[in-house]
Design a protein around this nucleic acid. Structure first.
Lengths: 174, 174
DNA sequence: ATAACTGTAACTAAATTAGTTACAAATAAA
DNA sequence: TTTATTTGTAACTAATTTAGTTACAGTTAT
């Protein structure tokens, strides 16, 4: 198993930033401290990942008090496949298994066919990710909240805003 | 990227054992030394992987001089998906990203939808692997050899046998 | 001016992997 | 029956990757 959590964390972050843009407006910013709290991890880990996403032009940031990060695009146009390609480039499995010896008249031919098959399987994996946009994920959550907690989008937006402020003040308490 | 080569190496080994069964007969055995040569690696690495495949009943072995390994089943009934499940159990990506904090009214709901999607993408990956059997891989190689090197199956079988003996004698020279 | 952010370098610790040495147990062959 | 060959496995090393952490320079709203 791939032990990296970069992909799931990046999706989590970008879904948060998308929801913030939709619920709280274009100009709203989210701090790395707040995001890190929600993932039980360290703000530096979040900033490191956001630094990569910024280099790829998906997000932008503002330093200083009341600074933070925001998502640059329309959440409906960014798919999980794009995010995967950014944070986990290359193949799911590498094919550099001790470059097969040409001495073996049979074994030396396996590599090529196996590589072709793996590429095709990985393409299939990514096709599923390509069918899901950040907006889809945001809507999944919003629908759940509206139905299960009987909150309107507006009520939920103000709850989110309140929570962001509460967490921010907790962080600065330290 | 997953840096493990267990899957590709296991497929390589089992394709070799399958070809040996088809070309050289049921009783034919292949040594870990010979397999390791073809992969430019260490016999212990090969035996370790074969030990797992033996525990899963895919192969069996015989100790002592002229001992070795053999594939127990019909190569047409074992798919690459089965092999993957054995040597890389679990998910392609783990979902234990710092179990999301319930404090965050939005973030706490993302996890479930992301997990569902990843499972579906992984299922799609494995479906492609499930369409390829060990026999398919053996036939890919045999067809290539017959066309490009103009060898009949019988000629190729004797070449393979010769090669196995040559490598074996090289190994015992040390 | 100050306080609150981002941005990033440097270090630690843990986990995983492949490779290696060594040797016990099994077994065919001399 | 002895010997040589092979599997089976434990123990260790080295390399790589990952997340977490501390520290601090640069930026900017208040």
């Amino acid at each position: 198993m791939n032990t990296s959590s970069k992909f799931v964390v990046a999706v989590h972050i970008l879904t948060l930033l998308s929801s913030q843009k939709i619920l709280l407006g274009e100009k709203s910013l989210m701090k790395s401290d707040f995001i890190a709290r929600g993932l039980n991890t360290n703000p530096v880990v979040i900033r490191r990942l956001l630094s990569l996403l910024k280099a790829k032009k998906l997000v932008d940031s503002k330093a200083g008090p009341s600074g933070g990060f925001y998502f640059k695009y329309d959440p409906s146009t960014v798919t999980l496949a794009m995010i995967h390609d950014i944070v986990e480039p290359g193949n799911l499995y590498h094919m550099y298994y001790s470059s097969p010896n040409k001495e073996c008249p049979f074994g030396s031919h396996i590599h090529g066919y196996l590589k072709t098959l793996l590429c095709s399987a990985e393409a299939s994996f990514k096709n599923v990710l390509a069918e899901k946009s950040l907006l889809d994920l945001v809507n999944d959550v919003l629908n759940k909240v509206e139905h299960k907690e009987n909150l309107t989008k507006e009520e939920f937006a103000s709850e989110l805003k309140k929570n962001m402020k509460a967490i921010s003040s907790k962080c600065s308490q330290k």
